[in-house]
């Protein structure tokens, strides 16, 4: 039987990876927050990572240590409407003088970034505790 403590490292690792991707999408959203485009289709849409639990072996591979972990299932576009700004001097403006802005709210993104970084820290703590217990278990032979 594989020691479960090993599994905790695996599970914690998947969670760290997933949260990191979430932070990456947030960074991407923030970077593109002020961008404008010539048409509504070309405008930047906020990206959201959707998580999914790794429930069984078939979702990873048999004997994997990551069962019960989490992965990024897909990255979806934010469905909020694209703001249409009247700015006829903008070189990207269409014939009516409108440009299309990214549908990103910086404040929301900052909150999401903080939530992701908190979750990341949580999982680091989980792995740290597991590591400490593993070391103590090894220390039994010194009793």
């Amino acid at each position: 039987m594989v020691m479960s403590i090993d599994n905790i490292f695996g599970i914690g690792g998947t969670a760290l990876h997933a949260q990191l991707i979430r932070m990456n999408t947030t960074a991407s959203n923030l970077a593109n927050a002020g961008t404008t485009a010539a048409t509504e289709d070309l405008a930047y849409r906020g990206k959201r990572a959707v998580f999914k639990a790794l429930m069984d072996d078939s979702m990873t591979h048999p004997g994997a240590q990551y069962v019960g972990g989490v992965k990024v299932d897909k990255i979806v576009d934010d469905t909020k409407p694209i703001p249409k700004i009247y700015d006829p001097n903008n070189p990207l403006a269409d014939k009516d003088g409108f440009v299309y802005q990214a549908n990103v709210n910086e404040v929301n993104e900052m909150v999401d970034l903080m939530a992701a970084s908190r979750s990341y820290q949580n999982n680091v703590e989980v792995v740290n505790t597991a590591r400490e217990l593993m070391m103590r278990t090894i220390d039994i032979i010194k009793a």
Binding site: I11, F51, G68, N123
Partner: peptide
Amino acid sequence: LRVRDKRMEVLARNIANDDTPHF
């Protein structure tokens, strides 16, 4: 010890899936 070990794994799963819809 094995059961306690297993329990920590289960709790680690919960924490890892804090942001997973429908988990």
